[in-house]
């Protein structure tokens, strides 16, 4: 099976920033992504959990996308102004995908 090199970008960010992250992804030409709820965790801003929370202020989400390596810089440049000052983590992982034309 033919595999192709790709980058997996994972953004864990405050739930209130969901719209802004999606807008940045679309600006960078990324149309395929997945949003996952995050149960809880701990970081520089302390420990948190989604359980029992009514408001979105203390919730986090994970936005994951797979892109061609050539598009990575444009995506990170579009994401940076959104992430600035907000609680969150961005990671980029080298990965392999099938059907490269889709990314």
């Amino acid at each position: 099976m033919q595999m192709h090199e790709a980058r997996r970008v994972e953004v864990i960010i405050e739930a209130v920033m969901e719209k802004q992250v999606i807008r940045a992804l679309k600006e960078a030409g990324v149309t395929g992504f997945t949003i996952l709820p995050v149960l809880g965790g701990s970081g520089r801003s302390g420990q948190w959990t989604r359980e029992g929370n009514v408001g979105r202020a203390s919730g986090m989400i994970a936005v994951i996308c797979l892109i061609a390596p050539a598009r990575l810089d444009a995506l990170l440049e579009a994401l940076f102004p959104v992430l600035n000052d907000h609680i969150g983590v961005v990671s980029v992982t080298e990965t392999s995908i099938l059907r490269a034309e889709r990314f």
Binding site: E14, V16, M17, S45, G46, V54, G55, R56, A57, S58, N84, D85, H86, I87
Partner: peptide, 19 residues
């Protein structure tokens, strides 16, 4: 407030300490 304003503050004043 602990529903509407905290969310708005996370968007508008992210440097403020939510704790």
């Amino acid at each position: 407030s602990y529903i509407a304003v905290p969310a708005a503050m996370r968007v508008a004043l992210p440097k403020a300490n939510p704790a």
